[in-house]
Amino acid sequence: MSLHFELVTPARLVRSEEVHMVVVPGTDGEFGVLEGHAPFMSTVKDGTIKVYKSAGSAPEEITVQGGFAEVGAKGLTVLAEHVEG
């Protein structure tokens, strides 16, 4: 019961881990991705990605700028132009 989450920037692979849920700031609104999400692709606006390591835990926030989110069979991949921190 975990989602494979990858966060990639042009310079490096920032994250590649198993998490519970990720909330992504899509251009048309925020969306949360859990395991088994239907295939989906969206552009990402500047904002914070919230990563929930386990159900009910406090989210970890990652500030990103511009990019794409893709949900496929392999999990969630966020291609961001810039990641802070």
Binding site: D28, F40, T43
Partner: peptide, 18 residues
């Protein structure tokens, strides 16, 4: 899988950004 992928806002808008 691609056959059922949902796009937001739309395929062309995404491609244009991509």
């Amino acid at each position: 899988i691609d056959a059922v992928v949902e796009y937001e806002p739309g395929e062309e808008e995404i491609l244009e950004e991509l």
